[in-house]
């Protein structure tokens, strides 16, 4: 499968699946938070140390980064039509930024889950 194969249908599918997952996650998370009033720092950490919460939260952030990638890529492809090099530059910047965010998120998640 060529790389251009991944860039049309797959991107479109990723956008939709990540949107559905994030919507469900936000609803579930809101329900959890609302049903336990009076969170303090310790109970907040305990919540995210639970494997189920940690895993679903990690998937949420993966979905978020993928969703941002497809969405911002769409905006770049739409509005920066004329100049391929400008498009490449912006897509690279976006990629670097998302990878940095990803590393940062992994660090936070690891610290929350391991300690």
């Amino acid at each position: 499968m060529s790389s251009h194969h991944l860039s049309g249908l797959t991107a479109w599918l990723v956008q939709r699946l990540s949107a559905v997952y994030m919507a469900l996650f936000v609803v579930a998370m809101t329900a959890v938070v609302v049903s336990h009033p009076g969170y303090d720092y310790a109970s907040w950490r305990a919540l995210f140390a639970q494997p189920l919460v940690a895993v679903t939260t990690s998937i949420f952030f993966i979905s978020l980064l993928l969703h941002i990638w497809v969405g911002i890529r769409d905006i770049i492809l739409d509005y920066v039509g004329g100049s391929p090099s400008m498009r490449l530059l912006l897509l690279s910047l976006l990629g670097v930024w998302l990878i940095a965010m990803g590393i940062w998120i992994v660090r936070i998640m690891l610290r929350v889950m391991l300690i």
């Binding site: 251009h4 194969h5 860039s7 049309g8 249908l9 991107a11 479109w12 890529r73 769409d74 492809l77 739409d78």
Partner: peptide, 12 residues
């Protein structure tokens, strides 16, 4: 032929 980000998938 329609795969890729442009030919079909620019439709929003």
């Amino acid at each position: 032929e329609l795969e890729g980000p442009y030919k079909l998938f620019r439709c929003h």
